[in-house]
């Protein structure tokens, strides 16, 4: 099939750009660990609220400047509803749902993941700036979806 010389130039430049995009995200994902949240652990969704560790949703200190947030998402709230960490802390969020699919997003950060019933979702983030961070549900979960949010306070 004959292709115009300019079309070849265009398609090759396009292919090179797309490859570069893929290399950038690929290296960032596989060499630097910036993978999208893809945790494989499962849980019985009906028993989630009574299964450890989700029977006691809480924020715990697990190391130097390191915290673990065990959270439950259910229509239309997150528990625990109040969390505080000092500035510079890395928080490992571990979230599951007791009912329908929810979202878990902290605006202005890269914290964004789906919370699917039956699965445990995990994501980590280091809070360098103090402030009251909004944690909101970004997947439609019912009539009260727009009120489903809590805040995480990062102290200076």
């Amino acid at each position: 099939m004959h292709m115009h010389k300019y079309e070849k130039i265009w398609l090759w430049s396009g292919a090179v750009c797309l490859t570069v995009f893929l290399l950038i995200v690929g290296v960032s994902a596989y060499a630097m660990g910036n993978q999208p949240p893809s945790h494989m652990e499962t849980i019985d969704p009906k028993e989630a609220a009574v299964t450890a560790p989700f029977d006691k949703p809480r924020m715990t200190k697990v190391g130097d400047q390191e915290y673990e947030a065990i959270m439950l998402a259910q229509a239309f709230t997150f528990t625990p509803s109040k969390m505080t960490v000092p500035k510079g802390s890395t928080v490992h969020f571990k979230v599951t749902s007791t009912d329908v699919v929810h979202g878990f997003q902290i605006p202005s950060t890269n914290v964004n993941m789906m919370v699917t019933p039956g699965y445990v979702s995990k994501i980590s983030y280091t809070f360098e700036e103090p402030g009251k961070y909004l944690i909101l549900c970004n997947e439609y979960c019912g009539v009260g979806h727009q009120v489903m949010a809590v805040t995480l306070e990062v102290m200076s």
Binding site: P37, M113, K122
Partner: peptide, 9 residues
């Protein structure tokens, strides 16, 4: 489904 659990990266 990039941000979903249960599918490996």
């Amino acid at each position: 489904q990039l941000l979903e659990p249960g599918i490996s990266h």
